[in-house]
Design a protein around this nucleic acid. Sequence first.
DNA 1: ACGCTCGCATCAGGTGGGAAACGG
DNA 2: CCGTTTCCCACCTGATGCGAGCGT
Length: 602
Amino acid sequence: MLGNEGESSTFASTKEAADERCKSPAVDGDNSAAGSRYAEHGVGADRYYIPSAVSKQSPEPPNPCSFIPYTPSGTVYSPSSAGRYPSSLHLGSVLPPAGFSPSTAGRSHFSSAYQLGQGPGCIYPSYTGSGSALSNITLPTAGPGMRAQVYLCNRPLWLKFHRHQTEMIITKQGRRMFPFLSFNITGLNLTSHYNVFVEVVLADPNHWRFQGGKWVTCGKADNSSQGNKVYIHPESPNTGAHWMRQEISFSKLKLTNNKGNTHSTSQMIVLQSLHKYQPRLHIVEVTEDGVDDISSDVKTQSFTFPETQFIAVTAYQNTDITQLKIDHNPFAKGFRDNYDSMYTAPDNDRLTPSPTDSPRAHQIVPSARYSMQPFFQDQFVNNLPQHRFYNSERAVPQTNNLLSPQPEDGASQRWFVTSMQQGGNSTSTSNKLDLTPYEGEYSSSLLPYGIKSLSMQTSHALSYYQDSPFSTMTAGWGPRAAYQRKVPPSLPWSPRPSPTAGFPDDSIKVKPQVEEEVNGSGGLISSWTEAQPSALSLDKTDSYSSTCKRRRLSLNGPSTEESSNEIKCEDLASAAPNSSSYSKEAPSSKSMAAYYSFYTNP
DNA sequence: ACGCTCGCATCAGGTGGGAAACGG
DNA sequence: CCGTTTCCCACCTGATGCGAGCGT
C-alpha cells in the first residue's frame, strides 16, 4: 500500500513535506526502521538509537556511516546484536547498563545501540524496494537541532500488546488507537519550527489471518490500498521548544477502513483490515509559516518503533489483546468484570494499566506533567528511556546494529525477510524477545511503581494517568503531592499493598524466563521463538485467556487474581533483570537516583 | 459585593460485545 | 458455509456548564 510503496514516495506524497521527506529522513527512517523492526523489534530498536544525523546520512549503507560514529556504543551491541536478533535484543537489555551509566555516554551509546533505526529493508516499504533515496539522503550533521531523539512514552504498554501481536480496530467512522502513540522528543533546535506527523505504513507484504489462536500469513497484502496514511499532529507546525516541552500525543489519531472518507482524512488514517502496519514518526523542519524547507532534505527525521506495529482488524481476534485493551483503556472500563478487584487487588492492572493506560500520563508525566525540564528529560531519557530514544539516525543505526551484530547486513535483512515471510509467528517471536528484555526494564520500574503507587494511593484519582511509572518518580517530585491529595479520597483500596505481596511469587516465576532469555542472546531468540507459540498459548490460557474467559465466561472466579498475576509476572520478570540495569544506570539527578533506587530496591 | 474554588449534573465521545448483515 | 464487516447497545471517561460555598 501506500506506506510501502515508498516510504520516500509516500512521504513525498504526504502533503507537507513530501518533497523533503522523500529525500531524506522519512525514507531513511523507514528503511532503518523496517530493518530494525524485523530484526529487533522494538526492543532492540528502542535501545539503540543513532544520531539522527547519522541515520539520515545514509540509510542503508548509511548504516555503516551512522555506525561509525556510534561505533563505540555499537560495539557494545554489536556483539549481542551481531549474532542475531536475540543478541540484539539482549543487547538492548544489556546495553542499558553500559550505555546508560553515563547519561551522555548513554546517549551516544544508545544511538549506536539502537537498531531501531531499522534498515530500509525491514519495513515493508523497504520491501518494495527501498529506497535508494533513503540511502542517498544524507543528513548533514545538521545543526544541533537535527539530532533529535525520540522516546516512546508509553512503551511498556506497547510492549505488552506487542507481545500478543497488537491489534487495532478500524471502523468506518474511525477508531482511536490504543495504545496511542506518544513521544518525547529531544535534540531539536529550540527556535526552529517543525512539523510532526505520523505515517502508518505496511509492515510486511502479507495478508494476515488469525487461526488456531495465532496470527498466520495468508496470501499477499493488498498494496493497492489508497487513502491517507499520514496524520499530522494538530499542533504542527511548532517550535522545537514546544515539541520538547511536553510529550507529543497522537491520541486523537483515528484509524479507518473507509477509503471514501476524504473529509476526515486529515484526522484519520486509512488502513486495510488484516494487514500489518508500522507507525512511523516524522519530524520535519519547516519555515516559520509551516512550509517545508525544501532546501533541506536533511531536515526530515523519521523514527520507527517496532513495538508499535499492529494488525488492523475490524473485530478483535486475539482475546489476549481484547483483555489488554479492556484492562488498560479507560474508555473500556465498562467491560472490566472485576472492576473493583482491579483497583483493590491487581496492582498489576493498576500498575501496569495505569502507567500504560495512561500513556498520556506517562508521557505527560515525564515532560508535561512534571514539566520536565531539559535536564530532567535527559536524565530521564538516559536512565530509563534510553532504549526508547531513537535518533532519526537511530533508524539507520538500528539497521546498523543489526548489521553490526551481524556482520552482514544482508544477513540481517534476510532475517527480516524470513521473519516476515514466516508470518506472524516469526515476527511475533522476535517481538516477544525484544519485548521481554525491555519490558523487564520497564516493568521493573513499573512494578515498583505499581506497588508504591498503590500503597501511596495515587492511582485512583490519578486514575490511569497517575499510574504511570513516572508517577512514582513523581512522587519524589512535587507533583506527587497533588496526587496524594486526590487519591486519599478516592482510594478506598488501601489494600494495594496486598497486591504487592502477591508479586513475589509471580516475580519469582517470571524471573527464570527472563534470565534465560537474557542470558543466551542466541539462545534467547530461539527460546523465545519457541516460547512464543507456547508462551502465547500459555499466556493466554494462564493469564489473559483466563482473564478473558473469566470475563466473558466467568470461568475463573478470581479473574482478577489471574490478571493481576499475569501482569505482575510480566512486570516482575522484566523488572528483575532490568532493575539491575537501572540501578547501574546512574540517574543524573538525585530524584532520578531516588527513583531508580526506589524501584530497584524492591 | 466580588472573585475564586469546589462539587454536581449534563453532554459528547470512546470502548468492546453481541447479533445481524454482507461477501466470497 | 465461513469469515469478515457493520450496527447497535450499555457502560465509562472527559470536558463543560452551572450553582453553592467560602474568603477577601
